[in-house]
């Protein structure tokens, strides 16, 4: 089973990388970009019987730092 975990910074947490990329996009002449925030995608290939609880635990224990990050688990089938 293919799983995609999207890890993003929580709202309100300053994202210096996003800010720098935002600045660079403006430098390239792109107009109308209000905000840029950078996250991370983790793709997993797991046994079909892997439970939702196990996936959540993987995110909570390692893939995301829940102090600063949110995560979303997507099953790609």
């Amino acid at each position: 089973m293919k799983i995609r975990v999207l890890v993003s910074l929580k709202p309100g947490v300053l994202d210096p990388q996003g800010r720098a990329v935002h600045h660079a996009l403006e430098g390239l002449g792109f107009k109308g970009v209000d905000d840029v925030r950078i996250g991370r995608t983790v793709e997993l290939d797991v046994a079909d019987e892997t439970s939702d609880e196990a996936l959540t635990e993987m995110c909570e224990k390692l893939l995301a730092n829940t102090v600063i990050e949110n995560y979303k688990i997507e099953k790609l089938g």
Partner: peptide, 17 residues
């Protein structure tokens, strides 16, 4: 220590990058 949850909070990229 923060990642191990022995201390609260997190250390993020320096604001200046």
């Amino acid at each position: 220590l923060t990642e191990a949850r022995l201390l609260p909070g997190a250390l993020m990229r320096n604001a200046s990058q």
